[in-house]
């Protein structure tokens, strides 16, 4: 949903888009929508991100179809059930596959492409949950935390190649991934996150929290000494 909302902003600005996702009928629904909203062209391709062997092919197809890429947004993910993961390494491994390894795999190819090209933007959706591990959510948190750290290094590497790497850290977002949860004051709509991403790309930012106030919430949470933090029920 965040990806869809962000793509709409690019469509309205008249960009050409190449959408990659698992479900063909949903892809087509989104592609039709983006065309009506003003996208110059919209292409789609199927990819199950757990099928690592297809990553390189998928990226090459996108590069060929659009005649080169200027910007990539990686926005897929699942929200693991923490309690279930505590009982099952298989499940934890799968969640890491979806939320971490698939992203790293895609980034491996993309980083080299953009490094060669000498310009471009890579935006990746991580999470505020990756800023500190907590008992209620540390499988998702560590999966996203790895992505955050990986991006930090990648940004450092690609800076000299004029490639902008953006880490997007949304807080609570009202999407299908979080359906069934009670939505409160801290929750944001995907459109709001999309706005932040769109502006971050435009302004070549490095790390953005979405909405902005999460930067300060997470600052406080990160500052709590471990001695105290481990006793908290978070």
């Amino acid at each position: 949903m965040i990806a869809q909302a962000t793509a709409r902003l690019f469509a309205e600005a008249g960009y050409s888009l190449y959408l990659v996702a698992r479900n063909q009928s949903k892809l087509e629904a989104v592609a039709d929508d983006l065309k009506v909203r003003g996208a110059e062209a919209v292409h789609t391709a199927n990819l199950d991100v757990l099928d690592y062997s297809q990553h390189k092919v998928a990226i090459n197809a996108a590069i060929n179809t659009l005649d080169g890429l200027d910007l990539v947004l990686i926005a897929h993910g699942t929200l693991p059930e923490q309690k279930a993961c505590e009982q099952s390494f298989d499940l934890t491994q799968k969640e890491f596959g979806i939320n971490t390894l698939s992203t790293i795999s895609l980034l491996t190819y993309l980083a080299n492409y953009f490094e060669d090209k000498g310009q471009g933007t890579i935006a990746v959706i991580s999470s505020v949950a990756g800023d500190r591990g907590r008992q209620s959510n540390y499988v998702y948190g560590s999966a996203k935390g790895t992505v955050t750290l990986y991006l930090q290094g990648l940004r450092n590497r690609l800076h000299k190649s004029n490639v902008n790497v953006i880490t997007v850290k949304p807080g609570f977002v009202d999407t299908p991934m979080t359906s069934g949860m009670n939505k409160g004051l801290l929750w944001a709509k995907p459109e709001k996150i999309a706005d932040t991403i769109f502006r971050a790309i435009d302004r070549r930012r490095d790390v953005v929290y979405a909405p902005w106030f999460w930067r300060y919430i997470m600052l406080i949470i990160r500052m709590i000494p471990e001695l105290l933090f481990k006793r908290l029920n978070l």
Partner: peptide, 13 residues
């Protein structure tokens, strides 16, 4: 993303 379960206010209503 689930964060602070205690901070949620139900606005569904």
């Amino acid at each position: 993303m689930p964060y602070y379960s205690g901070w949620r206010f139900d606005v569904a209503y």
